[in-house]
Design a binder for these strands. Structure first.
Lengths: 171, 171
DNA sequence: TATTGTTATACTCTATAACTATA
DNA sequence: TATAGTTATAGAGTATAACAATA
């Protein structure tokens, strides 16, 4: 598929592109954060919400996975998960293969809470885009693809995706 | 300037575009945050860095401006600024027109610290983009433009830009 | 001995409530 | 009475250090 009219575009340098990205991305992030804030239950802090969302994406994740991905230390992750376990949103078992390793999963209630909140984020952003031309929408959609391709690696744990091990026991 | 080969593109819906944005933007944000973390002086916390950067963008801003923009309460902003003033990075005077209103400015040292740190963020992102094709760079650059256009309003205080009032006195 | 996670401790960030000073 | 900011208090998030359990 031919995307651009190559005869007429003036390409951006890597540096200029990075500049623009550094300025633009936080603007979107601010809206996303606002939506999360407004739509999460009041008893869930933002860091807890992030942990909950991560466990959703990576059922069976270990505490180290959480810490590494969210960018916090192990003790902090431990305490955040403590809170989620107390609220009955996350189930913390320990792997029978390696009994040191925690195996985190959402409870039914955790899934419900996350879905209810998460569903509200996208529409908030969509409202901002409502007035854009099809061409602008296309540019944004394609840019998101490029970003996924280039930046996704940063977001994936170096460790293999944890098998959703059913050989677990409750703590 | 003709940007897209309209005959061949399949436009994204607003919803799909929002979906993609919600997934892609945090990936870039994570890299930006990492760069900030790695390049700010160790005596500056991330919230303090954000306040410092805001005062840089809005010399003469009030405490309320800081609180509203960063998304924190007035007492929190007050304490963060306290720390910056103690570190001699921010100067807090009070307007002579309205003696309740704080007037915040960077000290020479504050400017120096911010510039040194800030300069390092963009190259970190640029490194991620090094392998992209000119076409992908173009898409990212254009997307940033669209985002600026649509989302910039969210980031601007509703109040008029504070005049850099020289009629101030030290506290 | 190395790895996974927890506990202890201390500090920053954060908000709500109550207050002061100014308008 | 309303607004800008500070202070008091309490709770959450954070990291480093020390520890326990397991591999």
């Amino acid at each position: 598929m031919k995307l651009l009219d190559n005869a007429s575009i003036k390409p951006f340098s890597v540096d200029e592109c990075a500049d623009r990205l550094v300025n633009a991305v936080p603007l979107v992030m601010k809206v996303i954060r606002k939506e999360i804030r407004n739509n999460r239950p009041s008893y869930l802090s933002l860091p807890q919400f992030r942990v909950l969302a991560f466990v959703h994406r990576r059922e069976g994740a270990s505490l180290s996975d959480v810490a590494e991905h969210i960018g916090i230390t192990l003790p902090t992750a431990s305490k955040l998960v403590d809170g989620l376990v107390k609220k009955d949103l996350v189930l913390r078992k320990y792997s029978t293969c390696d009994r040191r390793r925690a195996v985190l999963n959402l409870t039914a209630q955790g899934s419900a809470v996350l879905e209810a909140s998460g569903a509200a984020i996208q529409p908030g952003v969509a409202r901002m885009l409502a007035t854009l031309s099809p061409e602008d929408l296309y540019v944004l959609g394609r840019a998101a693809e490029v970003i996924q391709h280039v930046f996704a690696g940063e977001c994936i744990s170096k460790k293999p995706f944890p098998a959703n091990n059913s050989n677990t026991k409750t703590s």
